[in-house]
Design a protein around this nucleic acid. Structure first.
Lengths: 202, 202
DNA sequence: TTTTATTTTAAACACTTGTTTAATTTCACA
DNA sequence: TGTGAAATTAAACAAGTGTTTAAAATAAAA
């Protein structure tokens, strides 16, 4: 079975990611991570020095997955309306495949845990093609004026919020897993239509 | 100074609410709560039996504040468009006054912590006047068809999501407290306009 | 094989956790 | 004023926490 087993360090990291994503920093326990990885607890510190350092590396990766995906989609060189439809479609799929990432990334950034600043996210956004593209469309009078941050918040919020509120949404709508997925699929049509209805000049 | 000091039980509960809202269930420590209340740690269990029970009562109250406010606004007997403008305005103010509630309510409901089911929220929504009103407007052809849950998610998500992502939003937009508040004020106009632009038949 | 470095382990460490106990103080009321 | 219940406290408890240590097992190098 050559190649089936991965090296210990990767095994620990994979286990830690799963546990951190489900329970958060405070809720995750080193022993639980070690158990999930099938290794001795001392090995966790042997490879990663401390719980905090292990957490940080995992947080960074997930923040980049969460955020980098948005930036990537925003900067594709497609016409604005096509792009908006595509963002909603692709990002919804991404979030459905990784439903724990948004709550993890957002909830762990509330109490001073702002080491995402190290990633220079602001510069990435400001220099983004999307910002320029939006400004041009506004200048042409093709769409109504709106700040990029408002548009991004609207698009992403409409996709991500139902995931964050999923237990409540599923309960209220009486939805099982398939039902919830279908609910999200329906939003792939509603959200871009709503955004475009707003942007189109009257 | 009669009436200035409240009774011990209330003092503990107020302190616990503040600590739980900021740090979550796992992050909050009994000793921190007792310190914030200025009482001996044994008193916390004396009045509330256990951490879990204290947490639950606080969670329930905040869930009701978060959710009851929505239901209340949804069920006012005003024309639909007026109502949507009013919901966004009032709920934004509510959330700005209680910015920690959304993350608290949502993040603590991810891991099986689903005791909000005890509150019979589903029935409240289904029997809501809003649901009926929406159906009537659709039948009349006054607005385009949409499921109530989609409309509610869209409205609430557009208000609440920026609050959940506030550290990131503030960082990207380079906003201080006033700047963020102004950002939210701008949304009071954008969100209802977007929703109405979608709902109005072509 | 012998030697050296790397990896893994069992056990303990020092500290924090929620909770309980038993004694003390406070206070209403007879 | 004296009595008993309620409120409060210091201290301890048992279990759980992240981390470290020192020895053992494994792998690599000589």
């Amino acid at each position: 079975m050559a190649g089936e087993e991965q090296d210990t360090e990767a095994k620990i990291k994979r286990a830690a990611e799963q546990v951190f994503l489900e329970y958060g920093y405070e809720g995750a326990k080193i022993r639980q991570i070690a158990d999930a990885a099938g290794v001795n607890i001392a090995l966790v510190n042997y490879y990663f020095r401390s719980k905090e350092q292990l957490f940080k590396s995992i947080y960074m990766e997930n923040f980049m997955a969460f955020f980098g995906r948005i930036v990537m989609l925003l900067n594709e060189e497609t016409p604005l309306e096509v792009k908006i439809w595509k963002i909603v479609d692709r990002y919804t799929d991404f979030i459905l495949d990784n439903p724990l990432i948004p709550m993890f990334v957002l909830s762990e950034s509330r109490n001073g845990g702002t080491f995402f600043k190290e990633l220079h996210v602001r510069e990435v956004i400001k220099s983004a093609y999307f910002t320029k593209q939006l400004q041009e469309e506004i200048s042409k009078g093709a769409i109504r004026p709106i700040k990029p941050l408002h548009l991004i918040m609207t698009i992403i919020g409409n996709i991500v919020f139902p995931i964050l509120a999923r237990p409540i949404v599923s309960y209220i709508g009486d939805l099982d897993d398939d039902g919830f997925r279908q609910f999200m699929e329906e939003r792939k049509k509603i959200v871009p239509e709503m955004v475009m209805a707003y942007l189109r000049p009257t």
